[in-house]
């Protein structure tokens, strides 16, 4: 059985997850660990995560970040995770190097927005949205290590369930984190 040393022996490690500019594919891959998720919920408590619907991150032992940084909300969430999580992990291609969303970096922001909201097919009320509730976009999508310090990296689009499981079990048991060849891929 897995165990992990934590400061408060009675408490289970707390884990938070978030998707920034990603597709939730990495979260889906986490669910792909199938029945092992029952083991996982025995071993950890989930804090903020789409899985719990908790909206703000509290102090955690582990933060898993999917997605790159594309707007002010991403920035805010990422920084909150960095403040609250002892260990922060970049999960998946978008968090690692910007991934597919960063392909918009080939264009200036104006071109992107005009293509979507002004010239695009099926646009009825052309105009770049300016509602203050919409998070403002960065001129480029960035990987998360360009904003905060990242402790571990799990590449893949998404990383496979086995990759995530290898990581989680090693981390929980305090073992060195190492992967078999087939568990590391960038696609």
């Amino acid at each position: 059985m897995l165990s992990r040393e934590v400061s408060d022996v009675s408490a289970k490690p707390r884990v938070a997850t978030a998707s920034l500019c990603g597709c939730f594919g990495c979260h889906t891959s986490l669910l792909d660990i199938d029945e092992r998720i029952l083991q996982l919920v025995d071993l950890v408590d989930f804090d903020r995560s789409p899985l719990t619907d908790i909206k703000t991150v509290g102090d955690c032992d582990l933060g898993l970040i999917e997605g790159g940084v594309a707007n002010t909300e991403n920035l805010e969430v990422l920084r909150a995770f960095r403040r609250h999580c002892r260990t922060l992990v970049a999960v998946g291609a978008c968090a690692v190097n910007g991934g597919v969303p960063a392909m918009r970096n080939a264009l200036a922001l104006r071109e992107c927005l005009e293509e979507s909201y002004v010239r695009g097919v099926g646009v009825y009320h052309p105009g770049i949205p300016r509602d203050p509730e919409i998070p403002l976009l960065l001129d480029r999508v960035h990987p998360i290590h360009e904003v905060v310090k990242v402790d571990y990296v799990l590449p893949g689009c998404p990383p496979s369930a086995d990759t995530l499981w290898t990581f989680l079990t090693a981390w929980l048991s305090g073992q060195p984190i190492a992967f078999p060849y087939t568990q590391i891929h960038y696609d």
Partner: peptide, 30 residues
């Protein structure tokens, strides 16, 4: 290098060499 969007992914020498040298992330700013 957006591997998820590349037809060569999986049979790309750049990627394979990166796997071989143990690269998990690009490390430097893009």
């Amino acid at each position: 290098h957006v591997c998820p969007a590349c037809e060569r992914s999986g049979s790309c020498q750049l990627q394979a060499v990166a796997y071989y040298v143990g690269m998990l992330s690009p490390h430097f700013p893009q």
